[in-house]
Design a protein around this nucleic acid. Structure first.
Length: 861
RNA sequence: GCGGGCGUAUCCCAAUCGGCAGAGGAAGGGGACUUAAAAUCCUCCCAGUGUGGGUUCGAGUCCCACCGCCCGCACCA
């Protein structure tokens, strides 16, 4: 409630001359404080490795933001993440936590090379200049990172250990090299991971991706598929991220079934999730690049042309042609296939199935060959109709409908009863599935298996601004690890970016200036690929534990204590790749004995995006608002508070809807209330003398109560990480103080006002660190406001003398009674009956009393 | 098609376990102060919670079905 009834609408003239007070001018102190904090390293925590004293303590907290890519100055998205994160960190510090709050840069990557190619910039100089620009902005905005533990993934001191991690995985058989059809980006001239291909185009370049064979390094993430899936149940992440990972891992249960060729009985394995529909198979499909097909169709010109045509397309393109537009038009792109020169025999009934090769079957999922059951699989039905192949119904739908094999256009994949399937007729399909699988297994013709959509992680990149893969290829010894003590394999400083292709490959000495570490063979060459930058970011949270160490990548003991990260804050765009890879690394490194945690990030917060007018901000749309423009006009505190007040952390912020001016107005009010208070105190010779004139007990109590309520409520909002409503609570307190001072003499409440303002500054400190620090000093308080304990409300001030309880009759509000808190049910009911007697026209058949909350009387008639 | 989320005042948004729909902000109208403007201050205006059912003494909140919008994923056998 704003003010008390006795004060409302009363305007008293203020005493004496108008106060001459200084206006809120952030530019007069923010930069000064930022520089001081940076110089004094006020937010630094001793690097954990050296800090054995606190390991094992319960009050430690590892707070982490996704480290930024240094593409230029900070943008609004960064400001959003860092502001949320910094409010969390500062609040935790004030509530007695020892917070590890490191900062680093994900500093390898393509834009540096593009800058080199386009503008002749040195990638290293370009990167470090951007990092310095971002670092200065971060300092300017008051984000309290620990500058003693900073790292950059492009530093040799860092990528030395990225290479070490690679070798650990290599030695464990988790890194391997094989030829694969890869996604080749013809513009960036590099290989892309499947995840980096969006709708058949390169994630960065937008170019149509081609498929070419190439020998590449992979990480065996599929070995952890099951654990990556199960582990999702143990972590506090947003459901949408967990679901995205579940879908990406794509676990399915089915069976491998052995078919045979009709001519010579060569065995062909098939993977199916629906072995219960085996009797409905009417044809058979191989991936065009299936080895059996390649062998049998050699020299067939049609086949060669077909295979060539299909192989140029990415998986995604082969499987798509089903985008929104096609779907809306009902015009899915046709599947491509060709009849092969042989047939295949179905093991359950000996029927002979025509064999096809088709683009909709992929070589690297399952076994690269399928049995086609058009009646119960839409893809097969589409192809069957296209090719005029027979359709055979083997499941009778549970919904009572009847499928007509001759005319159906929608495959039935729902529940149903098995029909036309010999001994299995009449069973519900899950039962059929179990029995057929068991029977096949008994006959040696099949077995139950589990399959994953997840593929191994392709990490080779034909780039030069990345961590070199620390392997030497020797004509005699094969792949040989560079000895650990020779790490890092350094990037040359003199790369030539004026020619297309890989500068590392083309470098005059990098590739050949090496001998085999095992046998000394001088014909050995270095691997000239670099690692996917997701490798760099899959373990950086470990390096923060001892970022300058030359003896280990991280200290095992510290990792045991600090992992998992307590809260990880970043954008939802990393829902799959970065977060899945990091989880894989932690599990693999755990199994190798380097740490104890099962998961890297216990809790994940995906902050919302900053958008503009409903659309993502972008340079091309011309609606970019830079943080710089905001803090130069209003100050860093206003930028921070605006971000936090605009929405809950996980909701998007539409910059068109928010108002830095409104927030600036409120901060100005906090400033004015504070400096006016100080001016009055100074004028009258100090707080003690102000109070000695006698305190207006009633008004002072109003102030103290309002303050206690704000402290209690804001504290709860902070704990729930809802900074928008925490700010609302502080605004209420500001309004109350304003009302009290406006409506009466200041002197009799000055002491209470001073107490409240100090509490307000403490509440506000995590959000507006500059303003609060400046005023804290002016209040004559010693030390930094950020070193103070977060305020706790005096419970006595939260107790109300009397409360108003609504009284309902038949659920409708009919009156209110004023009672003491804790009034018992009977007394409350009695008071309520009197209050609403006029409405109790019939017999009261039910009484609902919720003490201190409400009374509901249910009347018949 | 599948998954996740969101629909509350002119706008952005609050509302513990289901318990008085309005905390906070913005915009707008009126006013005070001022030579004027800015700033500041005061004041007013504004919804019954997307639609239809259900559960309940009581529903913004829970359940069902729809509508609309946003974000992922999507021919993985």
């Amino acid at each position: 409630m704003r003010g008390s009834a006795s004060l409302a609408n009363v305007r008293l003239p203020s005493s004496g001359a108008p106060l001459q007070t200084e206006r809120y001018d952030p530019s007069s102190f923010e930069e000064r404080l930022a520089q001081r904090w940076e110089a004094e390293r006020t937010s630094s925590l001793t690097p954990p490795a050296a800090d054995t004293e606190h390991q094992g303590a319960l009050d430690t907290f590892y707070a982490l933001t996704m480290f930024p890519y240094p593409s230029g100055d900070l943008h609004m998205g960064h400001a959003e993440i860092f502001t949320i994160h910094d409010a969390l960190v500062r609040h935790l510090r004030m509530t007695g936590h020892r917070v590890l709050n490191p900062m680093g840069w994900d500093a390898f990557g393509l834009p540096a090379e593009n800058a080199a190619r386009q503008r002749g910039a040195d990638p290293k100089a370009w990167t470090y200049a951007n990092i310095e620009e971002q670092r200065r902005t971060i300092v300017r905005l008051g984000y309290s990172f620990d500058w003693d533990t900073v790292l950059r993934s492009c530093d040799p001191e860092y990528y030395r250990w990225t290479q070490w991690v690679f070798l650990e995985l290599f030695d464990a058989g988790l890194a391997y090299r094989r030829e694969a059809l890869v996604n080749w980006d013809p513009v960036d001239r590099t290989v892309l991971a499947n995840e980096q291909v969006i709708d058949g185009r390169g994630e960065r370049s937008g170019a149509l991706v081609e498929r070419i064979p190439r020998t590449q390094w992979f990480f065996r993430i599929t070995r952890y598929a099951d654990e990556l899936l199960d582990g999702l149940d143990t972590i506090d992440w947003p459901d949408r991220v967990k679901n995205a990972q579940r879908a990406w891992i794509g676990r399915s249960e089915g069976a491998e079934v052995t078919f045979t060729t009709a001519d010579d009985g060569t065995e062909v394995l098939v993977y199916t999730t629906r072995p219960d529909t085996l009797y409905g198979a009417t044809y058979f499909v191989f991936a065009p690049e299936h080895p059996l097909v390649v062998a049998r169709m050699a020299g067939d010109a049609d086949y060669d042309a077909f295979r060539e045509e299909v192989s140029r397309r990415s998986d995604v393109e082969r499987l798509s042609g089903f985008g929104d537009e096609e779907e809306a038009a009902g015009a899915r792109r046709a599947k491509r296939g060709m009849r092969l020169s042989f047939d295949v025999v179905n093991p359950v009934d000996g029927s002979v199935l025509p064999a096809y090769a088709a683009d909709y079957v992929l070589m690297d999922y399952g076994t690269g060959a399928i049995m086609a059951v058009p009646a119960h699989d839409q893809r097969d039905l589409d192809f069957a109709r296209q090719e005029g192949i027979e359709v055979r119904v083997v499941i009778a739908p549970d919904d009572g409908s009847t499928l007509d094999a001759a005319t159906m256009t929608q495959a039935w994949s729902g529940d149903g009863t098995t029909v036309n399937s010999g001994p299995y007729d009449g069973l519900a399909w899950p039962e059929t599935k179990r029995r057929i699988t068991a029977d096949l297994e008994a006959q040696g013709k099949g077995r139950a298996t589990v399959n994953f959509r997840l593929r191994d992680w392709l990490i080779s990149r034909q780039r030069s601004w990345g961590a070199p893969i620390p392997i030497v290829h020797c004509p005699d010894c094969g792949q040989v690890a560079v000895p650990r003590e020779q790490l890092p394999v350094r990037l040359p400083d003199d790369l030539d970016f004026t020619v297309p292709g890989s500068p590392l490959d083309l470098h005059p000495t990098f590739k050949h200036d090496v001998v085999c570490p095992a046998c000394g063979n001088e014909d050995a060459v270095r691997d000239v690929d670099t690692m996917d930058t997701f490798v760099d970011s899959s373990w950086y949270f470990l390096r923060f534990l001892d970022p300058t160490s030359e003896v280990h990548a991280w200290p095992r003991d510290a990792a045991t204590h600090w992992l998992p990260v307590d809260q990880y804050t970043g954008g939802v765009e990393h829902a799959i790749l970065h977060l899945l890879y990091s989880r894989f690394f932690v599990k693999a490194l755990r199994d190798l004995g380097h740490l104890a945690a099962d998961e890297p990030f216990a809790r994940l917060l995906n902050q919302g995006q900053v958008i503009m007018g409903g659309k993502a901000m972008s340079k091309s749309l011309g609606n970019l608002v830079a943080p710089k423009a905001v803090y130069e006009e209003y100050g860093a505190d206003t930028l921070r508070a605006t971000m936090l007040f605009a929405s809950a952390p996980e909701d998007d912020i539409d910059w068109a809807d928010v108002s830095p001016t409104g927030m600036h107005k409120w901060l100005s009010r906090v400033w004015r209330l504070s400096v006016e208070h100080l001016a009055r105190v100074a004028e009258s010779g100090g707080a003690e003398r102000v109070a000695s004139g006698g305190e207006d007990a009633e008004r002072a109590l109003d102030v103290r109560r309002a303050s206690a309520v704000a402290v209690e409520a804001a504290g709860r909002e902070y704990a729930a990480r809802k900074y928008n409503t925490a700010i609302a609570r502080m605004m209420e307190l500001t309004n109350t103080l304003n009302d009290v001072l406006r409506t009466g003499e200041a002197a009799p409440v000055e002491r209470a006002v001073g107490e409240s303002l100090r509490a307000l500054l403490l509440l506000l400190a995590p959000i507006a660190p500059f303003l609060t620090e400046e005023l804290w000093g002016r209040m004559g308080e010693a030390g930094s406001v950020h070193d103070q304990a977060f305020p706790v409300a005096d419970p006595a001030l939260l107790v109300r003398d009397e409360i108003e309880v609504p009284v309902q009759v038949n659920g409708k509000l009919r009156g209110r009674v004023v009672v003491a808190p804790g009034t018992d049910r009977d007394a409350l009911e009695a008071a309520a009956r009197i209050e609403v007697a006029a409405h109790l026209t019939g017999e009261v058949i039910k009484v609902v009393v919720v003490p201190d909350r409400m009374v509901n009387l249910v009347v018949r008639g």
